[in-house]
Design a protein around this nucleic acid. Sequence first.
DNA 1: GCAAAAGTGTTGAAACTACACCCATGC
DNA 2: GCATGGGTGTAGTTTCAACACTTTTGC
Lengths: 231, 231
Amino acid sequence: MPVALAADVVILTIRDGRFAVLLVTRGNPPYEGRHALPGGFLEPGETIDATAARELDEETGINPALARLEQIGVYSEPGRDPRGRVVSVAYAAMVPDAAQPSAGGDAAEAHWVALDEARGTALAFDHDRILEHAVEHARRQIEHTAAAAAFCNAEFTVTELRQVYETVWRTRLDPGNFHRKIMKIPGFLEATGRTAVREAGRPATLYRADPKRPLALPFPRPRAGQGAAGR
Amino acid sequence: MPVALAADVVILTIRDGRFAVLLVTRGNPPYEGRHALPGGFLEPGETIDATAARELDEETGINPALARLEQIGVYSEPGRDPRGRVVSVAYAAMVPDAAQPSAGGDAAEAHWVALDEARGTALAFDHDRILEHAVEHARRQIEHTAAAAAFCNAEFTVTELRQVYETVWRTRLDPGNFHRKIMKIPGFLEATGRTAVREAGRPATLYRADPKRPLALPFPRPRAGQGAAGR
DNA sequence: GCAAAAGTGTTGAAACTACACCCATGC
DNA sequence: GCATGGGTGTAGTTTCAACACTTTTGC
């Protein structure tokens, strides 16, 4: 049974201590004018991974090489697309806040939308569901791997990284303990030698996360019951 | 661009302390007579999850309700199937050794094959690759959730569960410490009151794992360097 | 100097490994 | 009784959360 295969992409970032998602305003029917995830159809000769990367580039201008797209699920309910039998492969990626989208392709506009706001308004197709799954995926990912660094810029401070964890886990972490714990993980953070300029206080060392091995570096969240409330 | 969508299923079990995978011998071209993963094409009106469950049932006789199938990836390289543009959604599941397959559908035969043996012989299509990914997936899954219990029968002893971890992690775990650690996890194991008959030694209490919540129950593998060598 | 943020030292509590030991059964 | 495997007690060590304290900058 032939189907049309599509890729839909959930790009998450953290702005002002909250999750934000990259959405496009659809420029064509169906759901014209509605918010949707960037995405599009498989073309001859390409893999679906390539489709996801291409559509991200075309519709939002975000460089797919920086995004580390991961498959998170396949959506195949009959009737999920009014145009016919369309099956979507969903992708998720975390990027630094600095990434600036620009619309193109099928998209009339591309912009960051706060997660809570995106949840409030119905997205096109079954994209609400895909978005929820992507957020869950990101939370799990961060707990079991060093993926949190993906939310930071190429060079970042330990404090910035800590704030990512605090946002994702909705907790406060002790700055001192976090610093030691993260520095103890071998091969994760690499000092650049440079320091970040601050409005006040001692300048922080800038680090780079090795993008080659962002895997299997557990950073367990603090146990409940004792809490990790900051000072 | 229309594609044919298929589901391929990797069913893993543990036999004699080794991984084994459920393979079928293909009864039709292409790759007739070769080992392959059970699988087949999407039919009108069904989701791809339903396809996976149906094919598992048809080709192997394994009850999909017991298997807890999970999507592990999409395989879309052009040319991966000589019949044309076929995209496969791969699924993985862990089942107890007790499950007995019986062939049907496209499959001439269905049987358990030791993982090492399956790796030695080339499987049909790109099923070698899918199999590798599924094994990795299972190892990760077991580390972060209570999925290990899926390898055990409905009722099992703590020792049987420990042997699953020992196989998956290729370690030896202290029986006493394992017992305490696993019993401390709230809501994981539920005593049935019955005991298992043994050839020798004290009979072991039989437990049931709550199949409703096999999620997010971390059982961290022992740290390296101190080791968890048995007595 | 003072304020602010980075980063280190210390301490008491909890968790874990290793291993001794007791328990319950078949023979 | 003896062998065998299930299950518990416990000491020494490690890890960790909490938080005091030192360091390095801007003003």
